Simulated scan of single mutants.
Amino acid sequence: MTTAAAGSPAPNPRTLTPTAETVLAFVNTRADGSGRRELFADGDSFAAWLSERQEYGGETVVTDADAAVARELRDALVTVLLAHSGDEDGQGEQLLHAERHLRRAGPLYPLATVVTADGAELASPQTGVPRVFGTVLAAVTTLAQSSDWGRIKACRNPPCHFGFLDRTRNGGGLYCSTGCGSQVSMRKHRRRQRNGGAAPSEA
Rank of each mutant, 00 (worst) to 15 (best):
T3M: 06
F46Q: 04
F26C: 11
A4H: 10
P9I: 09
P159Y: 07
A112V: 15
T63S: 15
R169A: 10
N170M: 01
M186R: 11
N195R: 15
G119S: 09
A5V: 07
A67H: 07
R167I: 08
A154N: 07
S34H: 14
G196T: 04
R190N: 11
R71S: 02
D42M: 12
Q183R: 15
R30E: 14
T17A: 12
V114W: 08
G106P: 00
V136N: 06
T2K: 10
H101F: 12
R191K: 14
F46A: 13
D32H: 03
H161I: 00
M1G: 09
V114T: 14
S185I: 01
V23C: 09
L50H: 05
L50K: 04
A65Y: 00
V115W: 09
E93W: 04
W149F: 11
T116L: 03
V62W: 02
A70R: 03
L96D: 15
P158L: 07
H84T: 02
L122S: 05
A120G: 14
H84F: 03
R167L: 02
P11F: 09
I152C: 00
E21N: 15
G35N: 09
A203F: 04
E88H: 13
R169F: 00
E38V: 02
T127F: 12
A105Q: 13
H84A: 06
E121I: 00
R156N: 14
T79F: 03
V114D: 12
L16A: 05
G7D: 11
G119R: 09
A83Y: 04
G181E: 14
L174Q: 12
Q193L: 15
A65I: 01
G7L: 06
V132M: 09
R30M: 07
W49D: 01
L137K: 05
G196A: 10
A5Y: 03
W149E: 03
P13R: 01
A123R: 15
Y109E: 01
A76D: 10
R100M: 10
P125D: 11
H101N: 04
A4C: 02
Q91W: 03
L111D: 09
M1N: 04
P158V: 08
S8C: 06
R74L: 02
D44E: 14
S85F: 10
V61G: 02
T22D: 11
F46L: 15
L122V: 05
R14F: 00
E21A: 15
N28C: 04
R194D: 05
G35C: 08
L96I: 04
E59F: 06
L82M: 07
P18M: 12
P107C: 10
K153I: 05
L143V: 04
G57D: 08
T29K: 05
H189I: 02
H189Y: 13
A67R: 07
V23H: 08
G58V: 05
W149S: 01
A139C: 03
R169P: 00
T60H: 09
G7C: 06
H97V: 15
F46C: 13
T127M: 12
F26G: 08
R131F: 04
A41M: 02
A198M: 14
A198T: 12
S124Q: 10
A123D: 08
R100E: 14
E52L: 13
K153W: 05
G86M: 09
R151F: 03
S146W: 04
L39K: 13
G163M: 03
R71G: 02
S182K: 14
